[in-house]
């Protein structure tokens, strides 16, 4: 019962966003300000629902510690790779954790990485969107595994490539809703076009990272999942 409830809460967190986007686009005449407030309410609600979903799951101290560690490594990855432009291992870490440990763990790793790194780098209006985007990257990888377990190296690389763009688009949502009028798909495309090169670099970095080192990373994570299951 509790398990079902936690699943429902968790996935309804995701459901909110597309519904909200559609709503925002439908009301062309609405003042953008109205949607701006609503956007923050919705994003906080989505994250809260997903956290609640995690809260209701039963997890061992080992799971908690592993999630926290992956989150911290993901957060630090933002800084470690600063020397290489646009290679952001955070996305990849969220994806591979989700793939190995499941959708909920993947969400927690991604969102923790975003929030925790911003404790040190400074929070901004982008924080909740980053939390959501990286969290979703992790969760969707968990879903991919249950849908097609034999996705393979190239499939995974393609998935990482896509997430380079998805991540950018989710982050564009808040600037689009807050500062653009009218809210329609043309204006959303315009915003995304503005960030196209940036997102492409992110996507290419992700895919390259996944192709070159994906298997090695997965092996490490699998090793620890095995350790957690043995005991």
């Amino acid at each position: 019962m509790k398990k079902v409830l936690s699943k429902i809460l968790f996935w309804s967190g995701f459901g909110i966003i597309p519904v909200f986007m559609a709503a925002a686009m439908s009301g062309k005449t609405t003042i953008s300000g109205e949607w701006g407030v609503a956007a923050y309410i919705v994003i906080f609600a989505a994250i809260a629902l997903m956290y609640l979903g995690f809260e209701l799951e039963t997890s061992s101290p080992r799971e908690i510690a592993v999630i926290a560690v992956l989150g911290a490594v993901g957060a630090a990855g933002r800084i470690a790779f600063a020397a290489l432009p646009n290679v952001q291992p955070t996305t990849f870490i969220a994806i591979s954790s989700g793939y190995v440990f499941g959708p909920t763990a993947g969400f927690m790793v991604g969102s923790t990485a975003a929030l925790v790194s911003n404790f040190f780098l400074g929070q901004g209006p982008w924080t909740p969107w980053q939390m959501f985007a990286w969290g979703l990257a992790g969760s969707s990888a968990g879903m991919v595994k249950s849908l097609s377990p034999r996705i393979g190296r190239w499939g995974m690389a393609f998935f990482c490539l896509l997430w380079g763009y998805f991540f950018g688009w989710i982050l564009n949502l808040w600037s689009w809703i807050g500062f653009v009028k009218p809210l329609n798909w043309q204006s959303f495309i315009a915003v995304c076009a503005a960030s196209f090169w940036f997102d492409t670099l992110h996507a290419a970095g992700n895919a390259a990272f996944c192709l070159l080192f994906g298997p090695g990373f997965m092996k490490i994570l699998e090793r620890f999942r095995h350790k957690m299951e043995v005991t």
Binding site: V66, V69, V73, A80, A83, F217, I220, F224
Partner: peptide, 30 residues
């Protein structure tokens, strides 16, 4: 760039291994 990436990937691998190992002990303390 590819060579550099592989160097950083090694760094990341060591980092992951070390901290995942530590996390087992943290869990034990919890």
């Amino acid at each position: 760039l590819k060579e550099k990436m592989s160097k950083y990937a090694v760094l990341m691998k060591i980092l992951l291994l070390t901290f995942l190992e530590d996390s087992m002990e943290t869990a034990e303390a919890m």
